[in-house]
Design a protein around this nucleic acid. Structure first.
Lengths: 194, 194
DNA sequence: CAATTTAATGAACAAGCGTTCAAAAGCAAA
DNA sequence: TTTGCTTTTGAACGCTTGTTCATTAAATTG
């Protein structure tokens, strides 16, 4: 046997990325073999190399795509009051991350499995995202809306708190996403004001 | 060659655990081979099996030891006001975790590399730790000191925020640990009060 | 010093790893 | 229907994996 009936790169390509995403999130990059990914797609291991030069690129492309989407969709309207911008950011972060648990998990857990060059790229994107929030906080401090001693630390604290939602939130659970957003916004708002 | 001069289980045993801790934290459980751990100790791979029945136990013992220490040292004095208990908890969490970055990293990152039985044990210990904080919050709510809609969520949010310190804090950096504790306590205090 | 216990070696095991590639077969265009 | 392109197979490559064990030598005990 060789080429199988119905096979097409437009179909197999996305399935390879989806399988890699699912398995990397579930088992970890190092513990998932190319043969396991191939089996999930329903193909032999050799066929994967039509869609990625190597395993490392498979991981990097998933992470880079996730971070690029994150930055592209982050709300950013400097004309709005800092308090509104902060609320928009909090709501966006929770919803965006709740929508993509596998991507989020990989982006946080598999950093150390990136080559140094790839790591630097992802780290740069993450820093860019953090800067968006830090800018909001600094603006709010300048305008007297926020009482924040060290905007950098508060940035990291808020992001850690919000991202933590992914460790327990499940759609259809005790709380709706609206309720989660409301409760976290309540905590963030109180933490940054006097 | 066989037994080497100066070899003693009281020396090699701790060195095996220390090497495993360091390497697991740096590279991840799945990516670290028994031969790599042995090399770090300065011994052949076979010798490791005098100190652990297998690789999995090496990971589990490290995680269990860490969680047991955490629970043993968590401050718990129900006679103190809830606000004091909360402050004690926040300060303890930050300091304890800052002291053991490798253990903390492993305890959070390598859960999925545990067998189901081992996972259940570690998960139980983590739940127990979370319950300590949740109890403090519920007490404070009952006594009217805290304004917290959902103690369970606030528990998880606080722990996520505090544990996030480990991603950036380095001894000798811009901020002293005292300053870090003060800033996080400020955020937590404001977040749980009206 | 002799006997025993403890600790480490180093080779071996079967299994799995990421990756390559010639060959084969389905698909699309002429 | 023939031709050329696309896609996949399946075997093979060299290497690493966790683990076992007979052997050997150092340390300890009497």
């Amino acid at each position: 046997m060789a080429r199988t009936t119905g096979s097409h790169s437009d179909i197999t390509g996305p399935r390879v990325r989806a399988a890699a995403l699912r398995l990397f999130a579930a088992g970890g990059y190092a513990a998932v073999s190319m043969r396991a990914i191939a089996a999930e797609v329903g193909v032999q291991a050799g066929a994967l190399y039509n869609y990625t030069p190597d395993k490392q690129s498979l991981l990097f492309d998933l992470m880079q795509g996730h971070m690029t989407d994150l930055l592209a969709e982050t709300p950013s309207d400097p004309t709005r009051p800092a308090m509104q911008q902060l609320q928009d950011f909090v709501a966006f972060h929770i919803r965006f991350h709740a929508d993509r648990p596998d991507e989020v998990f990989i982006a946080y857990m598999e950093l150390r499995n990136l080559t140094p060059e790839n790591f630097a790229v992802i780290e740069g994107l993450r820093r860019e995202y953090e800067d968006r929030l830090e800018t909001i906080l600094r603006t709010g401090v300048e305008n007297g809306y926020f009482a924040v001693a060290d905007p950098k630390i508060v940035t990291l604290a808020i992001i850690a708190m919000l991202t933590g939602v992914n460790t327990w939130y499940r759609a259809g659970g005790r709380l709706s996403l609206d309720e989660v957003v409301a409760q976290y916004w309540d905590m963030v708002r109180k933490a940054v004001t006097v």
